[in-house]
């Protein structure tokens, strides 16, 4: 097994961990942060699969806009999940 496979396995494991955190966290702000980190890592995975167009779209949407929209939604409702 070469090192490149190991890197992709590490990144995939990080993606799964952040997705589980984003689903299970009671603090919705932390869930939003985990979602932002997941979009970052997914963008690296697209990049390693030689798809820069998808990676650039994921980066532009996931870096700022999607997290800001989620935070606006949290602001107008509640921060803690019951």
């Amino acid at each position: 097994m070469d090192l490149f496979t190991i890197v992709s396995i590490i990144l995939i494991i990080i993606t799964v961990i952040t997705a589980i955190i984003a689903a299970e966290m009671k603090d919705l702000l932390s869930a939003a942060i985990a979602l932002g980190i997941m979009s970052l890592i997914v963008s690296i995975l697209f990049y390693m699969l030689q798809a820069p167009d998808v990676a650039i779209t994921e980066a532009a949407i996931g870096a700022a806009l999607s997290m800001a929209v989620v935070i606006f939604a949290i602001r107008s409702t509640e921060r803690w999940e019951k």
Partner: peptide, 9 residues
């Protein structure tokens, strides 16, 4: 763009 999300937080 990365710091825009941090500033929103």
């Amino acid at each position: 763009l990365a710091f825009v999300g941090v500033i929103a937080l």
